[in-house]
Design a protein around this nucleic acid. Structure first.
Lengths: 132, 132
DNA sequence: CAGCATCCGACACGATACTG
DNA sequence: CAGTATCGTGTCGGATGCTG
């Protein structure tokens, strides 16, 4: 075992410290919890989607952001991109097993926002009126 | 009951549709699940913190971002800002009841990333080597 | 249909300096 | 100690137009 490998093993045993700014997971977390990625993953929980389906389902997203986020999610191994060799080509996006396992905690979080939306909005309103 | 109020009630009964781009919760969700806010909330789960404590705890955050995020979290009613009238003044940040209830799903999500960090990183590595 | 390329404005963010 | 003010850069993200 080389010194490099030993270091890698030791680091892995320490698990990941998200509070450390050198944590390699941070870019992935940022991307995956970003505005659009959360919605895309939530949408895919219902089943496989085509590009256009996602575009209409996720309200307000641009093609650019959709394609960009799908690429990032595929890179992280959360979404599978399947191309059917038809004409015109049909591309289907599906959650991988890893993606499905992420969808659990993620939809729980989104559900929380739905359940406490009123409290959040009234709190904001109160705050804004309190400080003119 | 006016027509406006009826509409408001109906809308509320439908709950919030996060997929609708007019969903008023979106800005709050974006802010709260943002890079720094997630870490700040996670840090505050351990108990009240002073400004400087948070600054050292959340690695890599600048004073500006910390103050900005704390203000947004206070606005959403997730964090309480308490000032002790001493000299120099001591400011303490604490999760509100609402904040604590959010911390549950949120830390679950972060924990998921910690547990599946290896899979995410190897998936990225594979993806990058596959497409030169 | 499923995108990529390009331009461009708007913030997000960090670094630095300053205040009560 | 706990911020605010200012500046500069980088990236986010939308609009538009084009491809196979």
């Amino acid at each position: 075992m080389t010194g490099k490998e030993q270091l890698a093993t030791a680091t892995r045993l320490l698990a990941y410290d998200t509070f450390d700014n050198r944590c390699p997971l941070r870019p992935i977390i940022d991307q995956t919890t970003s505005r659009w990625a959360t919605l895309i993953i939530s949408a895919l929980v219902a089943g496989p989607h085509r590009f256009a389906q996602l575009h209409t389902r996720v309200g307000g997203i641009s093609q650019k952001m959709l394609s960009q986020n799908l690429k990032a999610l595929a890179r992280a191994g959360l979404v599978a991109r399947d191309v059917a060799p038809t004409n015109p080509p049909q591309v289907t996006y599906t959650l991988t097993e890893l993606g499905v396992s992420l969808a659990g905690p993620l939809t729980d979080l989104i559900r929380w926002f739905g359940e406490h939306g009123d409290e959040l909005l009234t709190a904001q309103h109160r705050y804004d009126n309190q400080q003119p």
